[in-house]
Amino acid sequence: MELIRGLHNLRPQHRGCVATLGNFDGVHLGHQAVLAQLKQQAQKRNLPTCVLVFEPQPREFFARRQAPARLSLLRDKYQLLAQQGIDRLLCLAFNQRLRGLDARAFIQNVLLDGLGVQFLVVGDDFRFGCDRAGDFHLLQEVGQDAGFDVAHTHTFMRADERVSSTRVRTLLASGNLQQAAVMLGRPYQISGRVIYGRQLGRQWGVPTANIALRHPVLPLQGVFAVLARVDDQIWPAVANIGFRPSVDSLVPRLEVHLLDAQAHLYGQRLQVIFCARLREEQKFADLHQLQQQIYADIQSARDYFDAHKAMHVQPSASVNLWAHPPLASAPLAY
Rank of each mutant, 00 (worst) to 15 (best):
R244K: 12
Q96I: 01
A239T: 04
R269C: 02
G16C: 11
I234H: 06
L101A: 10
C130P: 04
D25E: 15
Q262H: 13
Y78G: 01
G185F: 02
A181T: 08
A310H: 10
A105Q: 15
L254C: 02
Y196R: 10
A159H: 13
S164W: 14
G129R: 08
V313G: 08
P315G: 10
R269D: 01
P207H: 05
H8M: 02
A310Y: 04
L139F: 12
F148S: 06
A42C: 15
R5C: 05
D260H: 15
L92K: 12
C50A: 14
F148M: 07
Q37Y: 11
N9M: 12
A151M: 12
K283M: 02
A228P: 00
S174L: 08
D25W: 15
P56N: 14
G114W: 14
A93I: 07
C50H: 09
A173Q: 15
T20V: 07
A296D: 14
C91A: 14
L47E: 15
Y266M: 09
Y188V: 00
Q271I: 04
H152Y: 14
A181M: 11
Q293C: 04
R127C: 09
N9I: 12
A63E: 15
G185M: 01
V182E: 15
V319L: 11
D260I: 03
V163D: 11
Q282P: 00
R229Y: 02
R253D: 12
L220S: 02
L71S: 00
M1E: 04
V238W: 08
N9P: 00
H137A: 14
L184D: 11
N240D: 11
D160E: 15
I241E: 13
D102P: 11
Q96W: 10
R253W: 05
L258G: 05
Q37M: 12
T20L: 01
V206G: 01
R70W: 12
P245A: 06
A151Y: 13
L38I: 01
Q66E: 14
Q118H: 12
Y78S: 02
Y78A: 07
V110K: 00
F126M: 11
Q199G: 02
S318L: 14
L270V: 10
E281Q: 15
G267N: 09
P236N: 10
V206P: 01
G192E: 01
Q299K: 11
I211H: 05
Q199T: 00
P207V: 05
R45G: 08
A159G: 00
Q84T: 03
I4E: 10
I4A: 07
D286M: 06
G143Q: 03
A93T: 13
Q66H: 13
G116S: 12
R202F: 03
L218W: 14
V206Q: 08
G175S: 14
L89R: 01
F156G: 02
A67D: 02
F305D: 11
R64D: 06
A301C: 06
E141M: 06
S329T: 09
L258M: 09
K44G: 02
V319W: 09
L213S: 02
G85F: 07
F136R: 10
A301E: 08
A330E: 04
G175W: 15
V121I: 15
D87R: 02
M183C: 13
G201K: 04
K77N: 10
C17N: 12
V18E: 03
D145R: 04
N210D: 14
D76N: 01
L254Q: 06
I195Q: 04
L21D: 06
F148H: 07
G205Y: 02
G185Q: 03
A212N: 05
E281A: 13
G26H: 10
